Simulated scan of single mutants.
Amino acid sequence: MQISRPDRRWRGQLQTRLLAIRPDSVCALDAAAHQVVRDVLPDIPVYASDSPHDQPCALALGIDVLNGLDAQQAQHLISRVRLYVAPRLLIATQSDCALDDATFRALGFSLEMAEPAEGKRLYYYDLDTYKIVPDWLNARFWAHPERWEP
Rank of each mutant, 00 (worst) to 15 (best):
R80T: 13
G119W: 06
P23R: 08
A114S: 15
A31W: 10
L107Q: 13
L66D: 11
P134I: 07
Q72M: 07
A31V: 09
H76F: 09
R121C: 14
Q15C: 01
Y47H: 13
Q94I: 03
Y123R: 02
D54C: 00
L83D: 15
A92W: 00
W136H: 10
C57R: 10
A143K: 14
C57F: 01
E112F: 02
A117E: 14
Y130A: 10
R82G: 05
H53F: 15
I78F: 12
A114W: 11
V65I: 14
D43I: 06
I21P: 13
P56L: 01
P42N: 08
L69T: 11
K120L: 07
A32Q: 15
C97R: 09
A20R: 13
W142D: 15
S79M: 05
D54N: 01
D50C: 01
Q35K: 07
A106H: 05
P52R: 03
L122W: 02
I132Y: 04
P134E: 11
R121E: 15
R17V: 07
P150A: 07
V133Q: 14
Q75M: 15
R17D: 12
D96R: 12
V65L: 06
P45G: 08
G119K: 13
G108K: 06
S49A: 11
Q75L: 11
D126R: 04
A20T: 13
I3L: 11
T16S: 07
G119Q: 12
N67A: 14
L127N: 15
V85M: 08
G68C: 12
Q72P: 02
D64T: 13
P52A: 06
L66Y: 11
H34S: 09
Q55A: 12
S79T: 07
D96F: 13
R8Q: 11
A74K: 02
E112V: 15
S4T: 15
M113A: 04
Q73I: 07
I132A: 10
Y84R: 08
V37I: 07
D39N: 15
Q55W: 04
L90I: 06
F109M: 01
W10Q: 06
L19R: 14
L41E: 09
A71L: 04
P6G: 05
E115S: 10
C57P: 06
R9P: 02
Y124A: 14
V40M: 08
A117G: 03
C97K: 02
E115K: 02
A28G: 05
W148N: 08
E118M: 11
Y47R: 06
P52I: 04
L99D: 09
A48V: 07
S49M: 04
L61Q: 03
P116H: 12
R11M: 03
L41K: 08
P134L: 02
M113D: 12
V81H: 08
V133K: 12
M1G: 11
W136V: 08
K120R: 15
A92R: 05
R147W: 10
W148Q: 10
A28T: 05
D126F: 03
S110V: 12
M113P: 00
G119R: 11
D64N: 12
L127W: 11
A32F: 09
L41M: 03
Y123S: 01
Y125W: 08
P52H: 00
L89V: 10
A92L: 09
Q35T: 11
F141M: 01
L83C: 09
I91F: 00
